[in-house]
Amino acid sequence: MIAHARNHSEISVKASDATGMALLNDAEGLAREARRVLRRLSETGAVLALAADMDKAVVLRSFKDSAPTRTAVVSREVAQAFALKDWISCSRSGRVASYTITSAGRAALKQYLAEDMERKRRARGLQDGCNPFRDVKNDWAGEGAVAGMSRPAMAESPLAMLARRRDKTGRSFLSAELVQAGERFREDYELAQMGQDAAQNWDRFMLSGDRAEMAGDETLPDGPKTARNRMLSALDDLGPGLSDIIMRCCCFLEGLETAEKRMGWSARSGKVVLRIALQRLHRHYMDANGHVSAMIG
């Protein structure tokens, strides 16, 4: 038995088991899941929850005065591999165990994101003028962004920041159900494995009205292909403008000011349009599924 002592054996792997150990030997698969899941775990208030009788774990993020929002679905194999790499650590044991990202996990994520930035620089022939390890306080504002993309830093998304804002009556600017809808859409985006290409080509997709390329080719696994189809269905329902702000703020993580400038909108209008878009998105999920937070992934 190979058990991770710091994780109280909640996630353990037998030497003969082919789950987490197999993923450790799949560098590409491990890196893909690390970029998706560790980034979610690095957000404030995020934990990975895993029940003993479940094949999949979920990343939950707590916001003030609202129930936790699911931001990612994670297979048990991925959770096992993360534990063996010491990227997550058990913070609460029991029937449903909770895990938080470790300093090793944050360091691994920084390295993966730095590699992504370097690949972008090389692909575009840019000078090395952007340090991915700098202070990320204002990164989501789009300062120094490459070709419309925000820096790949570990900071809060525009959606999370808006969720903390209050109106004059003290109510949240974004209700929990709207945050959940936006996070569900971002989860599909990440599961769809669209990555940098979608962000770099989004303006072309919007101008031409042809997003067929986003559906991907027939070589895609069923999971990512299905996630892309769910995204396209939602985008078709949202229509131009609303789909644009959802993609930019929920998926590409552009700051509201940056999104407003790129779309030629007046200052401070972006948050209102984003809320309208999230309301429409929430209605789409309710009409399609009867709920927002289906167990996907």
Rank of each mutant, 00 (worst) to 15 (best):
I2A: 05
E10S: 12
I11F: 04
S12G: 08
S12M: 01
A18H: 10
T19S: 13
T19I: 03
T19H: 14
A27W: 08
R35A: 01
V37P: 02
V37A: 10
R39K: 14
A51E: 15
A52L: 11
D53I: 07
D53T: 15
D55L: 04
K56H: 10
A72K: 15
A72G: 05
Q80A: 02
L84V: 14
C90Y: 02
G105F: 00
R106M: 05
K110Y: 06
R121P: 00
R122Y: 01
G129C: 06
N131F: 05
N131E: 09
N131Q: 09
P132E: 13
P132N: 12
K137C: 04
G144F: 03
V146N: 12
A147W: 06
G148P: 01
R151Y: 03
A153W: 08
A155F: 03
A160I: 10
R164P: 00
K168I: 09
G170L: 05
S172P: 07
V179N: 03
V179P: 04
E183I: 03
R184I: 04
F185V: 04
R186L: 01
A192R: 11
M194F: 01
A199C: 11
N201C: 01
W202K: 05
R204C: 02
M206V: 13
R211T: 07
G216M: 04
G223T: 13
P224I: 14
T226I: 13
R228A: 04
L232M: 10
S233M: 03
D237K: 11
I246P: 03
C250R: 06
F252P: 00
L253K: 10
G255W: 05
E260H: 08
W265T: 14
L274Y: 06
I276D: 15
L281F: 02
H282M: 02
A288S: 13
V292D: 07
A294R: 14
M295S: 14
